[in-house]
Design a protein around this nucleic acid. Structure first.
Length: 581
RNA sequence: GCGCCUGUAGCUCAAUUGGAUAGAGCACUGGCCUUCUAAGCCAGGGGUUAGAGGUUCGAGUCCUCUCAGGCGCGCCA
């Protein structure tokens, strides 16, 4: 519909251009907006005000000029000038109704678009370190990433979802040593557990299983360990314990403990995500980059490059030359690559795998990291415009008034699973999506629980269930409904409630496209709330199952179309559409 | 100290990405079930968009400064 209005405007402007009333103007700049309120018609354009500025004339005169040159149209009732120079378009009442036919005959493709042009797209999200279960902070990234992925698929992008597993590095070693110490305790070795090792009870579960699988294979006498535990520098203490564990048990045994921890946690992460309705196409291991020597391969390419230099035995990347605030180490003094180095290799792999659009969804605490990744992309002469880094603000956890620092290490967090068990998948997914991603999120589980019944998701689902219920009752009332027949000779739906609902349904493709290109799934959530409201209002105002067959059929096609759109919209947000509530 | 994000109704958040009279839900007040599901509908009160300047036909949105909150500034990941 919007496109038809747009075409009319283009014709008018072309005519004005040929008459030299206005200069040649890029027609793609013409913006048509869906009017906020019906008092401003169905659609509006601000083009007259923009053009008036260019030719320095009165906006309302310009608007009149444009209207005078509009071609005849079947769909327009009238066109007005309003306010400072808006052009408002009013559609003929029966025009709205064609949207039903479009929705019901498109086989659930309504709202699809091709703007993505099958662009190979990689969305990387969640990517939490496998050092503990996912918590409610990760849940936000999961819900957001999955919704963005669905929206991009809907708009024609060829999307793959990927989880980057940070299975290398110090955090993982701390996890391994945490498991080992719990294992020793479980075996009766009398040692204390460091307060900066991983505190969560899940570590004990892993240790118990490690003992079940390997008996007492990893036991060492407590004497040396007690000495190491006495170290005052907490971080040094952990590093020394890691070193000691590797040296005394041997690489092989250490790796067994390490893998026991990682695998068990990763399995749980995968389960939690699946239960949350979030699926990944690929799980990409950081260690696979190290094992395949990909990092060295790429980094050595940079050696000799003017942006690489050596200082204090380490290899540095001159990222400060490319917009970063300081230079960064790639290869440490001890010869090991930094996390940044593996991340460069990882991003290069994304490009090598042929992705034209690379989307990273990161927690906002990583924002300081953006500049150096972009600097690296420039150094490698990768196309910077392919990379899109979306930040999701952190969830702050509250227990009543008290603010808690959510941390996997301290075991101070509410797990995603816990949230899901308390409020259910649908309410949890919607709770996250309702908020714009850059909005800070205060999370109080007690509040989330108490408000779960007030969650707007039920309002939307209820509309869907009501529609299903209406259709269930058709046979009992001795009515019949044949969609094709109903569509072919439908009465006019001209009641105000019906026109409003039709107009809202017509907006769906626009909402999808906007939500997709701006990566803002919350727009869809708010739209669905609005759609449900229009339906509930209609439901209370009019009876659908009435004696008059033509009216009955027309109304049934309308609510069936509504049902389709609600289903599709909720699906994109990862929420179910129950038939009974 | 520097950088990024945020500040909108009592609370939680929107606002078509610079548009017209800033809107929803919760909470509060009143009304609507002998009619397709009352997890619903209708009506009402509630605002100096943190503050001060600026840009223009037009600013919650853009720029500058101030205030307040969050996060980040490792040879951690």
């Amino acid at each position: 519909m919007k496109k038809q209005i747009w075409a009319l405007l283009v014709q008018s402007l072309t005519a004005l251009q040929s008459k030299k009333i206005i200069p040649v103007y890029d027609t793609s700049c013409i913006k048509i907006e869906t009017s906020r309120g019906s008092e401003h018609g169905d659609f509006a354009s601000n083009i007259a005000m923009l053009l008036a500025r260019i030719v320095k004339s009165n906006p309302r005169d310009m608007a009149q000029n444009i209207i005078d040159h509009l071609p005849e149209s079947e769909i327009l009732e009238r066109v007005d000038i309003a306010g400072p120079g808006f052009i408002n378009f009013y559609l003929k009442p029966n025009v709205h109704q064609s949207i039903i036919h479009e929705i019901l005959t498109s086989d659930h493709q309504y709202g699809d678009s091709k703007i993505g042009a099958n662009t190979p797209t990689l969305i990387e999200f969640v990517s939490a370190n496998p050092t503990g279960p996912l918590h409610i902070g990760h849940g936000r990234g999961a819900a957001y990433g999955a919704a963005v992925a669905n929206l991009l698929k809907k708009t024609g992008f060829d999307v793959s979802c990927e989880y980057y597993i940070n299975d290398a590095g110090r955090q993982m070693d701390i996890l391994a040593v945490s498991v080992w110490l719990r294992y020793l305790q479980h075996c009766g070795v009398d040692i204390s557990f460091p307060d900066n090792a991983y505190q969560g009870d899940y570590i004990i579960d892993i240790a118990v299983k490690l003992h079940a699988d390997h008996a007492e294979k990893f036991i060492l006498s407590s004497d040396n360990i007690i000495v190491l535990l006495a170290e005052e520098d907490a971080e040094l203490r952990l590093d020394q314990l890691i070193r000691y564990c590797i040296d005394s048990l041997g690489e092989m045994n250490y790796r067994t403990i390490f893998d026991a921890g990682q695998h068990s946690i990763l399995i749980r992460i995968k389960e939690d995500l699946r239960d949350f309705g979030v699926e990944f196409d690929n799980w990409f291991s950081e260690r696979s980059l190290i094992n395949s020597d990909a990092i060295n391969k790429h980094i050595t390419k940079l050696f000799g490059h003017s942006l690489i230099y050596e200082k204090a035995g380490a290899q540095w990347f001159k990222s400060s030359k490319l917009g970063d605030e300081k230079d960064r180490v790639l290869i440490r003094e001890n010869g090991q690559a930094t996390y940044f180095a593996s991340d460069i290799a990882y991003h290069l792999s994304k490009v090598e795998r042929g992705y034209e659009k690379i989307i990273n969804i990161w927690g906002a605490d990583h924002h300081g990291y953006i500049a150096r990744v972009k600097a690296a992309m420039q150094a490698f002469e990768w196309p910077l415009e392919k990379l899109e880094i979306l930040l999701v603000q952190f969830a702050t956890l509250y227990r009543g008034k008290e603010k808690l620092q959510m941390s996997t290490r301290s075991g101070e967090f509410i797990s995603l699973k816990e949230l899901q068990d308390e409020v259910g998948k649908d309410a949890a997914r919607f709770f996250y999506i309702m908020r714009k991603s850059e909005q800070h999120l205060d999370f109080d589980l007690a509040l989330a629980k108490s408000q779960s019944n007030a969650n707007p998701v039920y309002y939307i689902q209820y509309a869907h269930a009501r529609i299903c219920s209406v259709f269930r009752q058709i046979p009992a009332k001795n009515f019949e409904y044949h969609q094709a027949e109903a569509l072919s000779n439908s009465a006019n739906l001209t009641e105000p409630h019906e026109i409003k609902l039709l107009a809202t349904l017509a907006r769906y493709p626009d909402v999808i496209e906007n939500a997709a290109i701006h990566y803002e799934p919350h727009q869809l959530a708010y739209y669905l709330k609005h759609l449900a409201h229009d339906f509930h209002t209609y439901y209370n105002a009019k009876q659908f199952l009435v004696e008059d067959k033509t009216i009955r059929n027309a109304r049934l096609t309308l609510i069936e179309a509504t049902q389709h759109v609600i289903q599709d919209g909720l699906r994109l947000l990862g929420v179910s559409s129950p038939e009974i509530m």
